[in-house]
Design a protein around this nucleic acid. Structure first.
Lengths: 217, 217
DNA sequence: AAATAGTTTGACCAATTGCTATGATTTTGG
DNA sequence: CCAAAATCATAGCAATTGGTCAAACTATTT
C-alpha cells in the first residue's frame, strides 16, 4: 500500500487519484449549478461517469465532499490571488491581480460560481476559512494604506476598493450567461478576455489616479 | 366574485392577495438561499406559515412559482433601474443609478441573490426576459456612446462599463456574508450604505474622467 | 336558512433522496 | 498462483420529494 504524497505512486494509487479528481471535478460542476442541497449524489455520480454506490465508496458524505472542494478552492485562491508580491508598484500589483483573476474566472467559471453560491447562502461552511481570508485582506489593506500615505495613489477606501475589484473580476464567471447574451456570443465562442481585462484595469487604475495606460501584459 | 385589479376589493380578495404576497416573499427567501432544485415546497410553506397542501392550493407548481417571482423581479428592476431619464447629465445619471442600486441591494438582498442564482445556473428561465433586458442595455449603450461622442465623458467600453456597475452594486447583496466578516459587522447591524455608495460612485465617475465630487444626494 | 362557492386539512401517492449491506469481481502482495 | 485486500454493482433502506384527493370547514349568495 502506498501513502498519498509519496514520490512514487503505484498504478492503483494513480487510478484512485484520477477517480478522486474526476469526482471533484464533477462535484464542482454540479454544486456550482445547483448548490449543495440542490445537487444529488446521483447527479454527481452520473457527471463523473460512475455509479452512485461507487461514488459513496470514495466519499464519506455529500456534505463532506462539498466541504472538501470548497476547502480546495479557498486554498488554491489564497495561493494564486496574492497582491503582496508587487507592493512596490501599485499599478503593477493591481493590473496583475485583475489579469489573473479575470483569466481564472473565464477559464474556470464553475469554481467561482460554487464559491459565490456558498457566500450567497450565508457562507455556513466558511467559518474555518474566514480567519486566513480576513488576514490576507487586512494585509492588502495595509499595503494600500501605505501607497496612500506615500502619495503613490489617490486616497481610496482600502477594503471597499478590494471588494469592488473582487466583484468586477468575479462577475464574469457568475454572470457569464448574461454576458453572453449581451455580447451576442454563443456558448462555444470564448469571451474576449483582453477586452474585459482592459476595461477593468482602466477602471481601477483611474480610481487610484494612476495613468490609464496598460501597464501589464 | 371580484376580478383582481378592480378598484374595490372584497375582504376575501384582500386576504387572498395577502396570502399570495406572503407566499411570494417566502419563495424569494428560500429560492435565494437554496436555488430552485434545492428548495422544497415544504420549506416554502413553512417559511410562509402555512401547510404544504395549502401552498399547493395557491400555486400550480414549484417551477411555476419560481418563474412568477423571477418575472416579478425582472419587471420591478426594469422600472427602478433605468438610466435614460438623466441622459443630459452623465454624472447625475451614473450616481443616481449607483445610489438606487446599492440601496436596493442592501435592503432586499434576497432578490439580488435569487437573480444571481438563476444566472449562475445558466439562466434557463430567463429566455423570455432577455429581449427586454437586452433592449434597455443597448439603449444605455447608445446614451453612453453619445456622451463619449459629445466629449462629455472619457471613452469607455459602454457594455463593460454597465456590466461592471452592475457587478459592483450587485455584489453587496450577494457577498453580504463576506462583507460582514471583513467589516466586523454582526448580522443585526446594517452595513454603511453611504460609505459603499461613495466609493462605488467615485470609482465609476473617475473612470469617465468626471470629478470625484459627490454629485447626487 | 339553504345552497353554493371558496378554503383548509390530513392522509396518501409514486418517485427520488442520501446512504448502506452484501456479495461479486478485480487487483495486489507474498 | 493464491489468499487477502481493494473495488465495484445490485438491491435495498427509511426519509423526503412534489403533488393530489376527498372530506371538513368557512364564507358568500340567494
Amino acid at each position: 500500500m502506498n501513502e498519498p504524497g509519496k514520490r512514487t505512486m503505484t498504478a492503483s494509487a494513480q487510478k484512485r487519484r484520477k477517480i478522486r479528481d474526476t469526482i471533484s471535478g464533477a462535484a464542482i460542476r454540479e454544486f456550482a449549478r445547483n448548490g449543495l442541497s440542490g445537487t444529488s449524489t446521483q447527479a454527481i455520480a452520473q457527471s463523473a461517469g460512475i455509479t452512485k454506490a461507487q461514488l459513496h465508496y470514495y466519499i464519506s458524505s455529500k456534505e463532506e465532499l462539498y466541504r472538501q472542494v470548497l476547502g480546495d478552492i479557498v486554498k488554491e485562491w489564497r495561493e494564486i490571488f496574492f497582491i503582496a508580491p508587487f507592493q512596490h508598484d501599485p499599478a503593477l500589483a493591481i493590473s496583475t491581480y485583475i489579469d489573473r483573476k479575470i483569466r481564472h474566472a473565464l477559464k474556470y467559471p464553475d469554481i467561482s460560481r460554487l464559491f459565490a453560491n456558498e457566500i450567497g447562502r450565508g457562507a455556513p461552511e466558511m467559518r474555518e476559512h474566514w480567519g486566513v481570508l480576513k488576514n490576507s485582506t487586512e494585509m492588502a489593506n495595509g499595503v494600500i494604506r501605505d501607497w496612500i500615505a506615500k502619495g503613490m495613489i489617490q486616497p481610496v477606501d482600502p477594503l471597499l476598493f478590494q471588494m469592488n475589484m473582487w466583484a468586477v473580476t468575479q462577475s464574469y464567471a457568475e454572470y457569464e450567461a448574461q454576458a453572453r447574451v449581451l455580447m451576442d456570443l454563443d456558448d462555444d465562442t470564448p469571451m474576449n478576455a483582453d477586452r474585459i481585462i482592459a476595461e477593468a484595469t482602466q477602471l481601477f487604475l483611474l480610481r487610484c489616479g494612476l495613468s490609464g495606460e496598460r501597464v501589464f501584459r
